[in-house]
Computed example of a mutant assay.
Amino acid sequence: MAEQPQPGAGEKRGNHRGEGRRRAILNALHDCIIEQGYARTTLADIARKAGMSPSHLLYYFDGKDAILSDYFQRVGNRIVARMQSFLSEPPSRQIELLSDLFFAGKGITRFEIGFMLECFGVAVHDTRLHGEKAELDRACKACLRELFRAAPSRERARDCAEIGYALLIGLRTAAFFDRELGPLKARELFRNEMYSLAGLAPDGSDACTAAGN
């Protein structure tokens, strides 16, 4: 079989430039959303922030929704990667790490939480983003199932994962809008309910054993 040609130095530099410009466009979307929200942001706004014309931007993305989709995938992939990195830990430690990740700003910024929530709203009517949101949900719940399979509640792992994910999304959303709740109180509620679902006492021991003692 003939050896496949390797890209030349010029092609490699072009690829690096292309990725750099894509990042500039994603950063521009980030800034526009902070300033005026996604709904009010136009393609021209993003292009201006990225330092290029709208026609030049369209060389890298099909449109505004495609930029949002790419950004959503990148943030979502990072969230899932962090959750997967916790799976080697005991269930109690995983609960603490998840609580910190989503409610204490240890790995996900408040902006990224807000961005993801805004994407969830867009995904209701956007077919492509709807599919990506569903894939993110599946990946996150798969991580939670593994957590519960390693806990005393292992026989109910699938149901516990569904409930745990609903708690995560619900409390994280509420904490974003409700100042009286806030992320720290939401973290406490999430943490306590996750321990309960897992059948664990807050010190990580089996809740039934702890109750018997």
Rank of each mutant, 00 (worst) to 15 (best):
A175W: 07
P183M: 04
A186Q: 02
D178W: 02
R156P: 00
G182M: 05
D159V: 10
R158E: 15
A174I: 00
A174N: 02
I169N: 04
L168Q: 12
A175K: 07
S153I: 04
E180S: 11
A175Q: 06
P152Y: 04
A151L: 07
L171S: 08
R179L: 08
G164V: 13
A166C: 09
A186S: 04
I169L: 12
A166G: 14
F177K: 11
L184K: 11
G182S: 07
L167G: 11
G170H: 04
E155C: 03
Y165T: 05
Y165N: 10
A175M: 06
A150F: 00
A151R: 05
A157V: 01
G164D: 10
R179I: 05
A174H: 07
A166P: 06
G164C: 10
T173P: 01
R154D: 03
R172N: 02
D159N: 14
G182L: 01
K185S: 01
L184P: 00
G170E: 05
A161I: 08
P183R: 06
P183Y: 09
E155I: 00
E162C: 10
A166I: 04
R154S: 06
D178I: 01
L167W: 12
G182Y: 03
G170S: 09
A175I: 04
E155R: 07
E180F: 05
E180H: 08
E162Y: 13
A186D: 00
L168E: 11
L168V: 11
A161P: 04
E162L: 13
R172V: 05
F177C: 06
D159K: 15
E180Q: 13
I163A: 15
E155Y: 02
F176G: 03
R154W: 07
E162M: 13
A151H: 08
A150D: 12
E180W: 08
E155G: 05
A157R: 03
L171W: 10
A174G: 00
F176Q: 14
T173N: 11
A175R: 09
T173H: 13
A150K: 15
C160D: 15
Y165W: 13
A151N: 07
P183S: 01
R172W: 00
A150M: 02
A175S: 15
A174W: 01
L168K: 07
A166V: 07
P152D: 00
F177M: 09
R156W: 05
R179V: 06
R158N: 11
A151Q: 08
I169A: 11
L171P: 13
D159G: 08
A151V: 02
A157H: 07
G164Q: 09
I163H: 12
T173I: 03
K185R: 10
A157T: 02
D159S: 14
I163S: 09
D178P: 01
A157G: 04
R154I: 01
A157K: 01
D178F: 02
A151D: 06
A174E: 12
A151M: 10
E162R: 14
G182N: 06
R154P: 00
R172G: 01
K185Y: 01
R179T: 14
F176P: 00
F176D: 12
A175D: 11
L167S: 15
A157Q: 04
